[in-house]
Simulated scan of single mutants.
Amino acid sequence: MKNLHLLAMTGALSLAVLSTPALAETNPGGFYAGVSLGYQSTDMDWKTERTFEPNGNLIAPFSDPTESLDDSDTSYGLFTGYNWVVGQGKWVLGAEFSALMGDASDEIRNRIPGLGDPDSNPTSFSEVETDDLALGLSFRGGYMVNNNTMVYSSLGVSQLEVETTSTCPADTNVCNPADGLQRFSDDERMTGWTLGFGAEHFLSDNLVLRAEYRHADYGDFDFTAIPAQSGSSFGADATIEVVRQTLEVGAAYKF
């Protein structure tokens, strides 16, 4: 349902761009820079791969080892790039660098997946969050459907910082109460691929409006959610899979 909502919004925005009255023919080639405003949805699926006794021996998980986390937020971005016009002026090739600001976070309030009793009190809990800044580099291919409007697709790479935190508030299920509250964090800058499509319309030789949908898959982040510690805590090794979808509208100035 979330994907359909994003695609529907992208289609509506693209139609609005395409329906803008055409002006005199413009040249899409050259340098450009702009700003964007959008909506992003981030899925962060947790899976605990192994659970351990405090002495380090493998054991079967004693709660569900999986959890789906997600968050949605407004995004703000800057982008700059260069276009080359080929094929008698109808085809456009380009490269673009972008910086997208917008964080995401979600938490599992009653357990560390695979460990602990969700019905106990107090109980352990977990949180996953992403950094405010995602950096991307993409290559674009576009087609001029009329003198002033281009539809395009893009393929690229993006980097995003992801942090996980697992907390034991002195419970008896995961951590030894005698050690007090324990908190364990891990983080990684993840690199993934992006795929997007959109439309741009030239309001003048220099001013461009755009609407774009982008899908980013950052793959898996393997980490230790909580280390097995003799006499202190059970342990768990886990994986987070991060996927982000972004819908943006933007304005650019072509030099």
Rank of each mutant, 00 (worst) to 15 (best):
M1W: 02
K2L: 12
K2M: 12
H5D: 12
T10W: 09
T10A: 15
A12K: 04
L13H: 04
S14C: 11
L15Y: 14
L15M: 10
V17R: 05
T20S: 03
P21K: 00
L23R: 09
E25M: 06
N27V: 00
P28Q: 05
Y32R: 01
V35N: 06
V35S: 08
L37T: 03
Q40N: 10
T42A: 12
D45G: 14
K47I: 14
T48A: 15
N57K: 05
A60G: 10
D64F: 01
D64V: 03
S72Q: 15
S72N: 13
D73G: 13
T74F: 15
S75R: 09
G77F: 07
L78K: 10
L78N: 07
L78P: 08
T80G: 15
W84P: 04
V85D: 12
V85I: 08
Q88C: 08
Q88Y: 04
K90E: 09
W91A: 06
A95L: 01
A95Q: 02
E96Y: 05
M101T: 09
D103L: 00
A104N: 04
S105V: 02
S105W: 03
E107K: 00
N110D: 15
R111F: 14
R111E: 15
I112M: 06
G114N: 09
G114M: 08
G114R: 06
D117C: 07
S120G: 13
S120Y: 08
N121P: 03
N121L: 15
S124C: 11
S124K: 11
V128N: 11
D131V: 00
D132C: 05
G136M: 12
G136Q: 13
S138M: 11
F139A: 11
R140A: 07
R140V: 09
G142S: 07
M144Y: 03
T149K: 04
V151M: 13
Y152K: 06
G156Q: 06
V157I: 15
S158Q: 11
L160P: 03
E163I: 01
T167C: 02
T167F: 01
P169S: 02
P169Q: 02
A170S: 06
T172D: 15
T172H: 09
N173P: 02
V174Y: 13
V174I: 13
C175R: 02
A178I: 07
A178P: 11
G180Y: 12
G180L: 02
F184P: 04
F184K: 09
S185F: 00
D186Q: 11
E188W: 01
W193M: 14
L195A: 14
F197V: 13
F197L: 10
F202G: 00
L203D: 00
L203W: 01
D205H: 00
L209N: 04
R210E: 12
A211P: 12
A211W: 04
A211C: 00
R214K: 14
H215Q: 09
H215E: 06
A216I: 06
D217V: 00
G219Q: 00
F221E: 01
I226C: 03
A228W: 06
A228C: 09
G231C: 10
G231T: 08
S233R: 09
S233K: 07
F234T: 10
F234N: 15
D237S: 03
D237A: 00
A238V: 05
R244L: 03
T246R: 10
G250N: 11
A251H: 06
